[in-house]
Deep mutational scan, measured.
Amino acid sequence: MDTYKLILNGKTLKGETTTEAVDAATAEKVFKHAANEHGVHGHWTYDPETKTFTVTE
């Protein structure tokens, strides 16, 4: 398992979190669910070198 990071750049919610996942696709599902639960919808990017997802509203 690897550690993946999410950076939230929402209009009303900003922050960072991490998750352990077997691959980037699994981490993305976890992060998108969490972002949706917090009402953050926007443009997603992924940097494979740093294993970091970013969502920007």
Results as ranks from 00 to 15, higher is better:
1 M>P: 08
1 M>A: 08
1 M>V: 11
1 M>C: 10
1 M>T: 11
3 T>P: 04
3 T>V: 13
3 T>H: 06
3 T>R: 08
3 T>Q: 08
3 T>S: 07
3 T>A: 05
3 T>C: 10
4 Y>H: 02
4 Y>K: 01
4 Y>A: 01
4 Y>W: 04
5 K>D: 02
5 K>C: 06
5 K>I: 11
5 K>M: 07
5 K>F: 08
5 K>E: 03
6 L>Y: 02
6 L>F: 07
6 L>R: 00
6 L>W: 04
7 I>R: 05
7 I>W: 04
7 I>N: 04
7 I>S: 03
8 L>R: 01
8 L>T: 05
8 L>S: 03
8 L>D: 02
9 N>W: 11
9 N>K: 09
9 N>G: 04
9 N>R: 09
9 N>Y: 09
9 N>C: 13
10 G>Y: 07
10 G>C: 10
10 G>V: 08
10 G>S: 07
10 G>T: 13
10 G>F: 15
11 K>M: 14
11 K>F: 15
11 K>T: 14
11 K>S: 13
11 K>A: 14
11 K>V: 15
12 T>H: 15
13 L>D: 06
13 L>F: 15
13 L>G: 08
13 L>Y: 15
13 L>C: 15
14 K>M: 10
14 K>W: 13
15 G>I: 15
15 G>H: 15
15 G>N: 09
15 G>R: 12
15 G>W: 15
15 G>P: 04
15 G>C: 15
16 E>G: 05
16 E>I: 07
17 T>D: 07
17 T>F: 15
17 T>K: 12
17 T>R: 13
17 T>N: 06
17 T>A: 14
18 T>M: 09
18 T>Y: 15
18 T>W: 14
18 T>P: 02
18 T>Q: 10
19 T>W: 07
19 T>I: 14
19 T>V: 14
19 T>A: 07
19 T>E: 04
19 T>N: 03
19 T>M: 11
19 T>R: 04
19 T>P: 00
19 T>K: 04
20 E>I: 13
20 E>H: 10
20 E>K: 13
20 E>C: 12
20 E>N: 11
21 A>D: 02
21 A>K: 01
21 A>H: 02
21 A>F: 04
22 V>P: 15
22 V>R: 12
22 V>A: 13
22 V>I: 13
23 D>Y: 03
23 D>G: 03
23 D>Q: 03
24 A>D: 04
24 A>N: 04
24 A>K: 12
24 A>Q: 09
24 A>E: 07
25 A>Y: 10
25 A>H: 10
25 A>R: 09
26 T>H: 13
26 T>I: 07
26 T>P: 01
26 T>G: 09
27 A>V: 02
27 A>G: 01
27 A>F: 00
27 A>T: 00
27 A>E: 00
28 E>R: 06
28 E>Q: 09
28 E>C: 11
28 E>F: 15
28 E>K: 08
28 E>N: 04
29 K>E: 13
29 K>D: 08
29 K>H: 10
29 K>G: 09
30 V>G: 04
30 V>K: 08
30 V>M: 10
30 V>P: 01
30 V>W: 11
30 V>R: 09
31 F>M: 02
31 F>Y: 02
31 F>T: 00
32 K>W: 11
32 K>A: 07
32 K>Q: 11
33 H>W: 10
33 H>K: 14
33 H>V: 14
33 H>S: 11
33 H>G: 09
33 H>T: 12
34 A>D: 06
34 A>I: 15
34 A>G: 04
34 A>C: 15
34 A>L: 15
35 A>P: 01
35 A>G: 03
35 A>L: 12
35 A>C: 09
35 A>Q: 03
36 N>W: 14
37 E>M: 14
37 E>K: 12
37 E>L: 13
38 H>Q: 14
38 H>C: 14
38 H>R: 13
38 H>T: 08
38 H>E: 09
38 H>D: 05
38 H>K: 13
38 H>W: 14
39 G>Y: 05
39 G>I: 08
39 G>F: 09
39 G>K: 07
39 G>P: 03
40 V>A: 04
40 V>T: 03
40 V>K: 03
40 V>R: 02
40 V>S: 03
41 H>L: 09
41 H>C: 11
41 H>M: 10
41 H>D: 12
42 G>H: 02
42 G>Y: 04
42 G>S: 02
42 G>V: 02
42 G>L: 03
42 G>W: 08
43 H>M: 12
43 H>F: 14
43 H>K: 12
43 H>W: 13
44 W>A: 01
44 W>N: 00
44 W>M: 04
44 W>E: 00
45 T>L: 07
45 T>I: 07
45 T>V: 09
45 T>H: 12
45 T>R: 07
45 T>Q: 10
46 Y>Q: 00
46 Y>D: 00
46 Y>T: 00
46 Y>F: 07
46 Y>P: 00
46 Y>L: 02
47 D>S: 07
47 D>K: 04
47 D>W: 04
47 D>Y: 05
47 D>N: 10
47 D>H: 07
47 D>Q: 06
48 P>H: 09
48 P>S: 10
48 P>L: 06
48 P>N: 07
48 P>Y: 07
49 E>I: 11
49 E>T: 13
49 E>A: 13
49 E>M: 12
49 E>K: 11
49 E>G: 11
49 E>C: 09
49 E>V: 11
50 T>H: 07
50 T>D: 04
50 T>N: 09
50 T>V: 05
51 K>I: 02
51 K>F: 08
51 K>W: 04
51 K>H: 08
52 T>S: 04
52 T>V: 07
52 T>D: 00
52 T>Q: 04
52 T>N: 02
52 T>I: 07
53 F>H: 01
53 F>W: 05
53 F>K: 00
53 F>L: 01
54 T>K: 05
54 T>S: 05
54 T>D: 03
54 T>E: 07
54 T>L: 05
54 T>W: 06
54 T>I: 07
55 V>M: 04
55 V>N: 02
56 T>Q: 07
56 T>A: 05
56 T>R: 05
56 T>Y: 08
56 T>N: 09
57 E>D: 07
57 E>Y: 06
57 E>P: 05
